[in-house]
Design a protein around this nucleic acid. Structure first.
Lengths: 184, 184
DNA sequence: TATCAACATGTAAGAATCGACATGTCAAGT
DNA sequence: ACTTGACATGTCGATTCTTACATGTTGATA
């Protein structure tokens, strides 16, 4: 249902669009929050038209079909936004990897976390650049701010975890050294 | 592949387990980062045994089958943790909803954001309670801290968005009121 | 005029996941 | 003796999504 909502919203905001247009828009700033390829979009548009949420407004060159939102489509969109309960299940591979981190030897874990901190920083910079480009109060502005905050949290977490691991690595090295009787 | 990694990891950490055991474990603290039901787990265990990553170690009462990890399974797990690139695509309905927020009238958006802030706060409290229960440095500790930080970011974002919307609602009300010539 | 990039729409096979259906065992309490 | 809840394993159909296959048009540039 999320794909439906996204498509309805894009057409609602930008006016009648073709599958090709919508595919492009999914590659733009929307890509930060949801992905869909043309092979998913085209069949979905057909189903939505069959369900009366969209109608083919115009057929252009190269078989181009322009879909417009119907009253039923607007109702469906508004209902999804306000009444459909947000899916709680999040299946986030990054979270799973964080969970499994203790399975790795300390040094390896630190390596991966360093990379993760770097990746979060990069994404953050990307979003900041996007904000400069599109302005503070563009359509995706709320999502953009949210992404920034989550990326900051991610980076800070990774740095915290690295620090923690480094401390326990030091402690481990100490306890290994001490019993051998090596001078301080 | 993530399910495979999660199952291998659970068996690696807790030793030989049955599908039933693993299902239970997916309902525990792991549920915060990944979900899988028995209908997904049982067939996957069979496939993994067929692929040589696990072997049936023991058959108990009530048809219970206990799976143990093999050397190939350990190698696969370690490789996934260290060499398989983390899936970047995140399909997060909450992000999509944040993106589409401007489609709603201000008051309705504020309502939904208030609910979101509340939900993040609840989840945060849940994780804090879990930390108290299992201790600071339990197996899922890194993931737990990560969840806490992300939930804090989520709540703070929602509060920020509410504040922003309230300000623009006020401004809107002003501009409506002023032209009517009503006294201050 | 040839060719290339962008435009434009589809289908098909397979993986991951979910909710429902289906079946049966065993131990403990009533 | 009965019943209930926990133990225990599976299958099936529907949905979502990905990758690859497949086809054709149009405009611009070489």
């Amino acid at each position: 249902m999320s794909l439906r909502a996204a498509l309805l919203a894009l057409i609602e905001v930008a006016g009648p669009s073709s599958g090709y247009d919508l595919t492009k828009r999914f590659e733009g700033s929307l890509a930060h929050v949801w992905q869909a390829s043309h092979s998913q979009i085209y069949p979905e548009l057909n189903r939505m038209a069959a369900d009366g949420l969209l109608k083919v407004e115009e057929e252009g060159p190269r078989g181009r079909k322009t879909y417009a939102i119907t009253a039923a489509g607007q109702a469906e969109l508004y209902q999804w936004l306000t009444e459909v309960k947000t899916e709680q299940r999040v299946r986030d591979e990054a979270s799973l990897r964080a969970f499994l981190l203790p399975l790795l030897p300390g040094q390896k874990a630190i390596e991966l976390l360093t990379e993760r901190a770097r990746a979060a920083e990069t994404k953050k910079a990307e979003l900041e650049a996007l904000r400069l480009r599109v302005g503070e109060s563009s359509f995706g502005g709320f999502a953009l701010e949210r992404g920034l905050r989550h990326m900051t949290a991610e980076r800070d977490w990774a740095l915290w975890a690295i620090d923690r691991l480094q401390k326990s690595e030091e402690a481990r090295t100490e306890t290994v050294r001490t019993p051998t009787g090596e001078p301080e």
